[in-house]
Computed example of a mutant assay.
Amino acid sequence: MRAVRRPELRLPELRPYDGAELEPEGDYDGLEFAGTDCSGQSARGARFMDCALRRCALDETVLSRARIIGSVLSGVRGVGTDLSQAMLRDVEVSDARLGGVQLHGAALERVVVRGGKIDFLNLRKAKLRDVAFEGCVLVEADFGGAELERVTFDDCTLARVDFSAARMKDVDLRGAAAVDIARGIDRLAGAVISPAQLMDLAPAFAAQVGVRVE
Rank of each mutant, 00 (worst) to 15 (best):
D27R: 01
G80A: 05
T157A: 08
G45Q: 11
V79C: 07
R6G: 00
I181K: 09
A46E: 09
L173F: 10
T157Y: 11
F133Q: 05
E214F: 06
G135E: 10
V137C: 10
V91K: 08
Q41K: 02
L103N: 03
K169D: 14
M49G: 06
E13N: 08
A66S: 04
R2N: 04
M49S: 03
R129M: 03
V137E: 15
R55P: 01
R5H: 08
I68Y: 00
S71F: 13
A106W: 08
A159G: 10
R15H: 12
V139C: 04
V111N: 15
G70A: 13
G145E: 06
C56F: 08
M49Y: 11
I68A: 12
R174N: 05
E32R: 09
A57G: 01
L53M: 14
V93H: 13
V151A: 04
A141S: 12
R150Y: 09
A206M: 15
V161S: 13
R54F: 02
L188E: 13
L198V: 06
G75M: 03
E214L: 14
C56L: 14
A166H: 11
A106K: 07
A191F: 10
P16Q: 08
C56M: 14
A3F: 07
D162Y: 10
R124H: 06
S42T: 06
L31S: 03
E60Q: 04
A182K: 09
D162G: 02
G75P: 07
G78W: 11
A96I: 14
V137S: 12
R150W: 07
E214K: 12
Q102T: 02
D59R: 00
A141L: 11
H104T: 04
E8H: 03
L173D: 02
D27F: 03
A206L: 15
K125A: 11
L121Q: 00
E21L: 12
L201F: 13
S84P: 03
S194Y: 14
A206T: 09
E13H: 08
D180E: 05
L138P: 12
F205I: 05
G78K: 06
R54C: 01
R97A: 08
V131D: 09
D170M: 10
T152L: 02
V211K: 08
D172F: 13
A106D: 01
L148Q: 03
L31M: 04
T81Q: 08
R67A: 07
V209G: 14
L58F: 13
S84H: 04
G115H: 08
E109I: 02
A146G: 11
L201T: 14
N122D: 15
R174T: 05
F133C: 01
R183S: 05
V112H: 05
D29R: 13
R183Y: 11
C38R: 01
A165Q: 01
R65V: 11
E140C: 12
Q197G: 06
L158H: 05
R2F: 00
C156H: 04
V112P: 03
V179E: 02
T157H: 07
V112Y: 02
I69S: 09
E8G: 00
K125N: 02
